[in-house]
Design a protein around this nucleic acid. Structure first.
Length: 258
DNA sequence: ATGGCTGAGCTACTCAGA
């Protein structure tokens, strides 16, 4: 079972890239972020033609998340947290894997810059509520998979130049502590679990040849509850889509579970 | 290098991203 997470930076601007990616990689489930469109303009038919069902929580212009699946998912929901600004940032669904029911949570965490503004407060409050609700959820179902664009650089190794980000909303200790707090509820950062010292990124700025110079950061993550660690087969950051024409600034992260 | 691209909405320019 191949599950991928990808911030596509507009599903409509990126539809050809996404279709090519699906044909190459044949995922079972895609968790998309920043689809930047409302539900009625989501390209359902494009995915349907490739054999996928779309579950969408859209928003005009900004944000928006979706889960695209080869197989029908149950209990899809857009209300995992109450968002202070009513932004579309979480979609959840349940997945059956053998005898386990896995709660899948697809998130697009607020960016939070600039710091010392209401945007940063929004990110902090958002994360606080998210952690609180995950804590409640894990008591009911211990099998949880959280994927998405966390907008958090977990450790110094996860960015090309940490100095530039240590007071940024993505790299601040206060925010990285929230990530640890979440993990301490009983999760593993799957990429870091399988790659103890490897330095790879999931995002590269569009500016000034960041991609060519590999000035990137690892901010897209798969967290898996400890009860599911035995089901991990592989984790991979697929850099190919970032090298294509008209790319998203993020590249997909791919998890295989058995 | 705190914005030098990119996308949406709209149709000139702002807002947002990280």
């Amino acid at each position: 079972m191949k599950i991928i997470s990808w911030n596509v930076n507009s599903v409509r601007a990126r539809i050809e890239n996404i279709k090519n990616y699906i044909k190459d990689s044949a995922p079972d489930i895609l968790m998309l972020q920043e689809i930047k469109t409302q539900d009625e303009n989501f390209p359902n038919d494009e995915f349907k033609n490739l054999g996928y069902i779309s579950y969408v929580f859209g928003q005009k212009s900004y944000n928006g998340v979706a889960i695209i699946s080869k197989h029908e998912l149950v209990n899809t929901n857009n209300n995992f947290i109450k968002d202070d600004l009513n932004q579309s940032r979480i979609i959840t669904a349940e997945l059956k894997l053998k005898k386990k029911i896995i709660q899948m949570i697809n998130i697009y965490v607020p960016n939070g810059n600039p710091v010392d503004t209401e945007k940063y407060e929004y990110k902090k409050n958002w994360l606080k509520k998210f952690i609180s609700n995950v804590k409640k959820k894990i008591q009911k179902n211990s099998n949880i998979l959280i994927a998405g664009d966390f907008n958090i650089i977990p450790e110094e190794i996860d960015v090309h130049d940490f100095k530039r980000y240590e007071n940024d909303a993505l790299g601040r200790l206060e925010i990285r502590k929230k990530y640890r707090e979440l993990i301490n509820l009983g999760f593993k950062d799957v990429y870091r679990l399988k790659n103890k010292t490897k330095q790879e990124y999931t995002f590269w700025d569009y500016f000034a040849g960041s991609w060519q110079k590999n000035y990137g950061m690892r901010i897209d993550h798969f967290l898996i509850s400890n009860s599911l660690v035995e089901n991990i087969k592989s984790i991979n950051i697929n850099k190919k889509p970032r090298s294509k024409e008209k790319p998203s600034d993020h590249t997909p992260i791919e998890l295989e579970i058995i």
